[in-house]
């Protein structure tokens, strides 16, 4: 499905040539001029706000009036608040369960990696959920779970299982939302692995086959190592997707029932926008940022290492 002319691959093949050294005037300035517009906007809308949020998290601010310095007050309150721990716990559940996406995506990719008629369409249809807005996905699943008319309960009834109002049950609600979130995420991982499978080295596979490597062993020792770039991207993207989760929580439950399905991203939105507690909201955002920073740092070091 992906031929050798696709831009990424071509770019990669040629990647390792070193950039040329500039000899003429304006030696130092030229790249900065090219970068200026992007850098300017990026600083204004991304870099400055990050710093600004950090500072704001040390203040109390209701969106109007004066900001009042409270030092670590917001953080003290945060760590003492039940909601925060519920949100954090839910974020961790999101992250753990989202880790199912890469292996399931791989399984589907392996299943679909054949050359039969119409397989291109099949692959496209499998990938389809990723293209749809999370709001639409939220709607679809809200309805799927509806206690009166949802398909889920119709299925449960067929099997004689007690029906359940998934989205208003504090025990199951988070899992219900995560299932909805996994759907497009699996599709994404699948496509990453399909691309990876396409660029496997045929020599290695043939050699392994001659050595009578088979099935899972083959997968474990020959295929997976070659797929490691795809796995890396899949894991990074999945972790980030899990931490950023907002759209589905907002559309499916608005954090409910009684806040039991909230996540850090939604909690900060609710505190800032509905409760007018901008400083406190910023503190939630900072905690989320710090958790994510671990992954960003991991990704960056790995990427920078491969560059040098």
């Amino acid at each position: 499905m992906q031929d050798q002319n696709t831009p990424t691959l071509r770019a990669n093949q040629l990647r390792d040539k070193p950039p040329i050294t500039r000899r003429r005037f304006p030696k130092q300035l030229t790249p900065w001029l090219f970068m200026a517009p992007a850098l300017l906007l990026f600083s204004l809308y991304v870099l400055y706000p990050i710093i600004s949020s950090f500072i704001l998290s040390f203040y109390n601010w209701d969106g109007m009036g004066d900001k009042v310095w409270v030092g670590f007050g917001n953080y003290v309150e945060l760590f003492d608040s039940e909601t925060f721990w519920i949100a954090l716990k839910n974020n961790i559940i999101w992250m753990l369960l989202f880790m199912l996406a890469p292996p399931i995506g791989l399984a589907i990719a392996l299943f679909l990696n054949q050359e039969v008629r119409g397989i291109r369409l099949v692959k496209a249809l499998f990938f389809f959920p990723f293209v749809i807005s999370q709001v639409v996905i939220g709607l679809v699943f809200t309805w799927f779970y509806d206690p009166n008319l949802g398909l889920l309960n119709s299925i449960l009834e067929v099997f004689g299982i007690q029906t359940i109002a998934l989205l208003s049950s504090e025990e199951y609600v988070t899992y219900g939302i995560i299932a909805a979130g996994l759907w497009p995420q699996i599709a994404y991982c699948m496509i990453l692995y399909l691309t990876g499978l396409n660029s496997l080295s045929p020599d290695q596979i043939e050699a392994a086959r001659l050595d009578r490597a088979k099935g899972l062993k083959m997968l474990r020792y020959i295929i997976l190592p070659q797929l490691s770039p795809a796995t890396f991207i899949a894991v990074v993207v999945t972790v980030i997707g899990a931490l950023r989760s907002f759209d589905l929580v907002a559309t499916m439950t608005a954090g409910g029932p009684w806040g039991s399905s909230t996540v850090l991203a939604y909690m900060m939105y609710e505190e800032s926008i509905f409760n007018y507690r901008m400083g406190y909201g910023a503190a939630v955002a900072v905690v989320l940022f710090l958790i994510m920073a671990v992954y960003i740092a991991y990704f960056l070091t790995r990427m920078l290492r491969s560059e040098s």
Binding site: D146, P147, A165, L167, S168, G256, P257, W258
Partner: peptide
């Protein structure tokens, strides 16, 4: 307690 409210009202 006697369940006089609509079932699953949180939905």
């Amino acid at each position: 307690e006697p369940g006089y409210y609509l079932e699953n009202h949180a939905t």
